[in-house]
Nucleic acid binder design. Structure first.
Length: 283
DNA sequence: CGTCCCACCTGATTGC
DNA sequence: TGCAATCAGGTGGGAC
């Protein structure tokens, strides 16, 4: 489900509410698929640790925590939360009814709970131990080679797609090229750049790629500002919906008139995903 | 290695 | 109304 703007919204919200809190207890559901690290390792690493920060890397939420008490146990760990399609990370008071499909609960010193809820179970939880010896490239060694779309320089962006014989939309979705772009923001940025999703990535001109990069940045920044897109059930750490879906120009609008020219928006399947575009505005 | 396609799940919606 | 088919914000593994 959640793409970069949704994950960023959730990470920021959770950070604001729980950083500095000590984790007094950890419960896990025992559904094996959810846990990329053994559950016992997750429980072990987090119990008694203090949450330092919660942030986004690509589509992954990274919670950094450390035990402050004992000197020998100064082991910063990173708790990685990937939300898959339907994952939620909620900060709740204990009285709040436990949603179905809750797979992990971190109890905090003040009684509140950080809950991971995921009906479809495409989400993944894991622990990443920071190698103490090699702090030169911490934090993101697990993130893969993809670049962050909000900070990648133009020349690097252009190089990403060079000689790639795949539709530009498939390339945008490829997390080893760019981090955080999913189905909604791929379609929306291609519309705003005036580029058809089936165009061969390696044959786009520098000008088209420059346009795509700025369209992508604009769309992502705007979506972050509006708290993400709530298409069906996405909510942030407080259970609030986002508002960017109001500004969707093509995603979810198959058959409806283009808001710019009135031509019906086409919906096709590309790279196995529903793909929406305006056959008149996009070349 | 690059690319394609399917499986992995549950739940909501659509269609007969 | 009822039930089956289809679709959904993602990714990783196997086939080619």
């Amino acid at each position: 489900m959640p793409e970069l703007p949704e994950v960023e919204t959730i990470a920021n919200g959770v950070h604001a509410r729980v950083h500095g809190q000590r984790i007094t207890g950890v419960w896990t559901s025992g559904k094996p698929q959810t846990f990329k690290s053994p559950e016992a390792e997750i429980v072990d690493a987090l119990t008694g640790a203090t949450i330092d920060s919660v942030r986004r890397v690509g589509k992954t939420i990274v919670m950094t925590a450390a035990r402050t008490g004992s000197k020998k146990q100064k082991d910063p760990v990173e708790f990685l939360i990937h939300l898959g399609m339907t994952g939620r990370l909620l900060v709740s008071v204990p009285e709040a009814p436990l949603p179905p499909h809750t797979h992990a609960i971190l109890t905090l010193a003040d009684g509140r709970e950080v809950r991971f809820v995921d009906p479809r179970r495409f989400g993944r939880l894991s622990i990443h131990h920071q190698p103490a010896t090699d702090n030169l490239q911490p934090a993101t060694s697990y993130a893969g080679p993809g670049r962050e779309p909000l900070t990648i320089p133009l020349e690097d962006f252009i190089t990403l797609f060079r000689r790639r014989r795949t539709p530009i939309k498939a390339a945008l979705l490829n997390q080893s090229l760019l981090h955080g772009v999913g189905n909604i923001y791929a379609d929306e940025s291609l519309f705003r750049a005036g580029i058809r999703p089936r165009r061969n990535a390696g044959r786009l001109t520098r000008e088209e790629l420059a346009k795509l990069r700025s369209a992508l940045r604009d769309v992502l920044r705007r979506a972050i500002k509006l708290g993400g897109s709530s298409v069906s059930d996405y909510v942030d750490a407080e259970g609030m919906r986002g508002y960017f879906q109001i500004e969707h120009k093509v995603y979810g609008r198959g058959g409806e008139p283009c808001l710019v020219c009135g031509t019906p928006i086409k919906k096709i399947t590309l790279a196995g995903r529903g793909t929406h575009f305006c056959p008149h505005c996009q070349k």
